[in-house]
Amino acid sequence: MASSQMAAKPKKPFNFYKWIRSREGQQAFIIVAFSIIPLALLLIFTYYPFAEMFKFSFFKMKYVGKREFVGLKNYIDVFTRDDLFSSLKLSIYYIGGAMVQLALALYLATVLCFGVKGGNFFKGCMFFPYLINGIAIGFIFKFFYTRGFVFDTVLQWFGLELENLPYWLKDRSINNISLVGTSVWKYFGQNMVLFLGAMMSVDSELYEAAMLDGANKWQQFKYIMLPSIKTIVTLNLITSITGSLSAFEPPYVVMSGGANGTATYFVKMHEVAHTSQKVGLASAMAIVLLMIIFVATILQKVIMNYVFRSSEDEDVNAAKRREKKLAKARAKEAGK
């Protein structure tokens, strides 16, 4: 999306002194000199592995040794082996978590945007988890959820009995939710900062004008804040879904490699690739995941376009009506 924006930008005035021959030469030279390293890094460490991985996905192979072409067998395995495909279902928990996280971030950003005393302090507290090392977060939450430890103690402060509380990490009906909680905890503050940044970029005069016109807080939110942040909301949606599909650190660290039915697709993939060294199968898993991510991204874009188009259509219609009115008025004037 950004690329089309950039491409639409008017051309720089370099055209205008193009007549200097030497200048063109110098330009070509600097373009090559400055882009060769970044492009080489990009091609070598992103696109080459991508192409290789695609190739691997059709082979039965280990890191070393013979390769055997097996066609689509790896892909069929991905979908038919119970343990692999079912791990993808866990992503639903993470997607649910991502939705909660976005809603929470949006709410808190709104609260902060209306101005409170000590807003910066609160913002800092909620943002800080984002900066903590993923491994450290894993340990912190392993500790947090242990039976009778932090979480249980705090719940007991509020009058709950320990006997009635589940084992947060052992109980299979709840442990995935506990893990999703850690990722919501890490990212909600960061999302909030993003939303707040977009909200603050709105001209404050708009709010003043709205207040003078008697708009209440809800109307301010709906008509001023929300439209100004829709791009970033869409973007966050996409990144959080991509992130949910590739959730890795919470089960890997908190559950020491995804025990108790918490192994997400990524954890499984890691296991297949590095423990059992089935490189071909792991590659096929990665390609399948990429496909899902592409589809999810495109779907989201379409849906978001559809959702936001309705409001824009209104504006267009309103503009048309106004034009018509003006035209009528002009016709009247002319008639006089």
Partner: peptide, 10 residues
């Protein structure tokens, strides 16, 4: 869009 960890195999 390419998740880095997924490509680590290659």
């Amino acid at each position: 869009l390419l998740p880095g960890i997924a490509m680590q195999v290659a």
